[in-house]
C-alpha cells in the first residue's frame, strides 16, 4: 500500500535534501531520516497489531463455583428436542421459557425472577418447559458457548442436577464476546453440584444433547416467529401461545399462576 507513497516521500525528501544541501552546504541526510522514520512507523504499527493478536488469547472466566442451594427446589427432566421440563408433571399451568445461556437479557431476567419461579415450580402449580437454545453461538470467542452450555445443562438434567447447574450458569454468566466456560469447567461444575462424574463428563464431552439443542432452536425459531414476528429474541416466555411480559416483573411466575387460577 505504501509503495507509491514511499516513493513520493523519498522524492520529496531527496529534493528537500538537495535544497538543504544548497542552502547550507550540509550533506543531505534527509533521505536517511525518511527511511528511519518509515521503518519506525512500520515497526510501531506491526508491533501493535501483532501484540494485540497475541495478547488477546482469551482466557475463560476463572474459577466456576456453583451457585448457592436454592430455598425451593424442583425436579427437572430432559426431553427430546432440547427441552428441559421443570416442576410437577400435573401442574395446572405450563409456561414455555426460551433462553440462551450467553444472552445478557436472559441473565437479567434470571436475576430478577428466579426465586419467584423456583417457588412456583416447587409449589406444584407451575410447570416450565425450558427451551435452551443456541442462538448466540457466534457471540462467544471461540464460538459455540451457547451450544456447549445448553448441552451441559441438559446433561445435568439427565443426572437430576438441573436446577443448581442452570442457576450457576446464569448467576455466573460469562460476558458476550468472551470465551465462555471451557468444556473442562462445565464438566467440573457438574461434579461440584453432585452429578455422577463419569456419566456427566461423557455426556458433556460427547455433546450428547447437541443435536437436540440445535433441533430445538430450529423449532423455537418457527414457534417464536408465529408469536413475535421477525423481531423474536431471548428471553421469551410464552403461555398458551401468548407472550408473557416477564422482563421487569420479578413476580411474573406467581402472577401467571394466580391469574390462570382465576381464569379456570
Amino acid at each position: 500500500m505504501g509503495g507509491a507513497e514511499r516513493n513520493a516521500r523519498k522524492r520529496r525528501q531527496q529534493e528537500a535534501a538537495k535544497a538543504v544541501g544548497k542552502a547550507r552546504g550540509a550533506s543531505g541526510n534527509s533521505t536517511r531520516n525518511a527511511i528511519v522514520i518509515g521503518v519506525v512507523v512500520v515497526v510501531v504499527i506491526g508491533l501493535a497489531v501483532i501484540g494485540g493478536v497475541l495478547l488477546n488469547q482469551k482466557e475463560a472466566p476463572t474459577a466456576l463455583q456453583p451457585a448457592a442451594e436454592s430455598a425451593s427446589s424442583y425436579d427437572a427432566t430432559v426431553q427430546s428436542g432440547g427441552v428441559v421440563v421443570a416442576g410437577a408433571k400435573d401442574a395446572p399451568v405450563t409456561v414455555e421459557v426460551y433462553e440462551d445461556f450467553l444472552c445478557p437479557a436472559c441473565g437479567m431476567l434470571f436475576d430478577q425472577s428466579h426465586k419467584d419461579v423456583e417457588k412456583a415450580l416447587a409449589s406444584g402449580k407451575l410447570k416450565a418447559r425450558f427451551h435452551l437454545i443456541n442462538m448466540l453461538d457466534s457471540q462467544s470467542d471461540p464460538p459455540g458457548y451457547s451450544l456447549e452450555a445448553a448441552n451441559a445443562a441438559s446433561c445435568a438434567a439427565e443426572s437430576g442436577k438441573f436446577q443448581r447447574y442452570y442457576n450457576t450458569l446464569f448467576e455466573k454468566q460469562p460476558e458476550e464476546g468472551g470465551a465462555g466456560y471451557t468444556t473442562d469447567q462445565l464438566v467440573e461444575l457438574g461434579k461440584k453440584v453432585g452429578a455422577p462424574a463419569d456419566k456427566f463428563g461423557r455426556c458433556v464431552r460427547r455433546g450428547t444433547y447437541k443435536n437436540d439443542v440445535q433441533q430445538g432452536y430450529q423449532k423455537a425459531q418457527q414457534d417464536l416467529r408465529k408469536i413475535y414476528g421477525d423481531q423474536f429474541g431471548t428471553p421469551s416466555v410464552v403461555h398458551n401461545g401468548r407472550p408473557v411480559e416477564a422482563m421487569g416483573n420479578p413476580h411474573w411466575a406467581s402472577d401467571l399462576v394466580a391469574k390462570s387460577g382465576k381464569d379456570s
Partner: peptide
Amino acid sequence: SVVASAMPFLELALGALLLAGLGTRL
C-alpha cells in the same frame, strides 16, 4: 477474533504516531 483484537491496538498506534508527528504522511 483476530480483527477485533488487532484493530484497537492499530488505532492506538496510529494515534500515538500522529500525536508525535512521526511519519505524518505515511
